[in-house]
Write a protein that binds this DNA or RNA. Structure first.
Lengths: 193, 193, 193, 193
DNA sequence: CATGAATGAGACTTCATTCAT
DNA sequence: TATGAATGAAGTCTCATTCAT
């Protein structure tokens, strides 16, 4: 791996253990195994490194969600949404501290937002993908005419998001079983038998 | 108002405009209209001020939710939950940047958590209150036997929470109408006619 | 005891436990059981308190030494000097940290020195007293013509002083027996049988 | 000279003129000709600089004293001890304010002590060296069987130590002649003709 | 005489960034 | 490109002293 990526990876590690406020260039360099000066051969400044880290974070969920697109009509809607929910819980979990931290630096949030808009992304991305999927299923007739796809998407992902937030807040981990149970409860309510 | 509360209020204002990372004692003192030294006549250190600010933040929602308890059986379930959802959107909105910021300082999060546990509170507080309300309504027979109260609570508040997060992330405000529309969509899905 | 003396005593206690550098007005007030403001009703400033403390310290040894004057001709010279040496060890011990600390604040040392001169005292006081005593004994013929009284005084008190310094430096206490043994060794050498 | 040593030297200079209490990092940096920040590229903190200064101080005397070892049997005992006493007066003089100052910061004294123990040194070092020398001379028969080497060492160095302390306390300098006279008086008493 | 909140100067330290090697 | 010493701005906090009550 080249130094640039080593630095990004090191930064992510430091961010997760020390928090954004205590993520210093000195520590990043130490973990990346290079000198502080080297950081500036690959990035404009510290914030630049952060933005690179953040960009890498939202990829996973988005990839799961592009797959989702092709799942319409296959398996059951419920099992598909279960996969989505589990992936969301997983992904939210790993990115929550980083994404939240950015609120402590409004100027950086601003810059991050700009990049977002440039790349035509949005924090609603996941919700939109699920909405699109549900629309397809609705068109095929696999879900009720009455369901509002976006509302279902918001409810499903929203509850996963908040739960992850709360767990991160408490610093507790949850088992696979607990996750499954939570998701089942949610889906039972959204799609009563 | 005594200086102690002036400082807390000033800190909240600075936090919201500058972000946690750029909230300096110098700026707090300036906004509070006192000297930096004075901060330390009322608080042990900067973090101590933050924790006082945070403690003040979650009061509103909790108060709405204690009222909720006595609403069981009155009005309609749907209108009651609508009130809750609107209050949640309102309250989440004003506390989101502060609450999220804390992830940038894990040690402070730790301390905040401890205070939480001491006061026998939890980030699940609101969800639990809604759950309790729904249980009551279920017992009275105003909502279906089949509904899982906690799941409904998680879906409702979760979607409000995530939506607020996303709006804050984008830096956009939403109108009362947009809020109402969002909540109606959610409730239509949770309680189909 | 009036507040003025309570403050002096409190200051001495704080000085001995915290050291001059960490002796704050806040701590003095706490130990004296009064407010910080009160200190300034009895003393001009912090240094003024210190000077009062220091003045109280050298009294004991000086008193022993005035008694010494009248001991000439009584008991044996050796036993008289033994008493002096033991008193010196005792007294040096309790005042060493305070007296030494003053070197960390040359301006205060300067002021202390001035007070000294005003009161016609000198750090050589003890040595001079012993010298005077020995002179008397020499005149009576109880010690050899050849002995240089001041040199004997300097050797005796000097060795006691340095020993006390070293013990304080190491933070160790010595028993009565160890003290006696040390003094005997010294006297055996100064006055060989 | 590299910056690290420049800082140590600057600190010693500032310590001697301002005293420990008024030796600020700002002043050290000014005298060393570097920025305050630079201090922390070479030392962990201010105390760390002090400890390095102190370590350098006791070297001279110890070196004289190692030489002493090889002097046994040469010259006269008296002239050898005279050299020792003069060296002690010299060395004590330059280190007295520093060494004494440390009593104003008990925690620093503690740390200094630990370093001492680690390096297997002790404040008695000089006294022990003189004792060892005298033992040799005693074995060779150049000094009386009856002399207690350690007591002689303690008397000799103790009186030099106290005298230096008193002079420093008074802020007076003494000439070479005065020093010689003092030492002669001491030696005449310890080794009467 | 007692109080204690308010002060403001200044201390120590951290840290992102630069630049000569 | 890699280094790491040097920087200087800025941050948090301490503390002796004052003053209105």
């Amino acid at each position: 791996m080249d130094l640039k990526n080593k630095i990004i990876e090191a930064t992510e590690r430091v961010l997760l253990t020390n928090g954004l406020a205590k993520t210093t260039t000195k520590e990043i360099a130490r973990v990346a195994g290079c000198s502080e000066g080297s950081l500036y051969n690959h990035f404009r400044n510290k914030e630049d490194i952060f933005l690179h880290v953040l960009q890498g974070k939202l990829k996973n969920l988005m990839e799961t969600l592009t797959l989702l697109h092709s799942l319409a009509g296959k398996e059951t809607v419920r099992s598909n949404l279960k996969q989505v929910a589990l992936a969301a819980l997983e992904d939210y979990h790993s990115s929550m501290p980083l994404i939240c931290s950015i609120f402590s630096e409004p100027e950086m949030l601003l810059r991050y937002r700009e990049g977002f808009t440039l790349r035509n992304e949005s924090p609603y991305g996941a919700n939109e993908a699920v909405e699109a999927y549900l629309l397809k299923e609705k068109n095929i007739g696999r879900i009720s005419e009455k369901l509002h796809p976006r509302a279902v998407a918001d409810l499903l992902l929203g509850s996963c998001f908040q739960r992850t937030f709360q767990l991160n807040f408490l610093g507790s981990e949850e088992s696979q079983e607990e996750r499954a149970e939570f998701v089942n409860g949610i889906l039972d309510t959204l799609f009563p038998v």
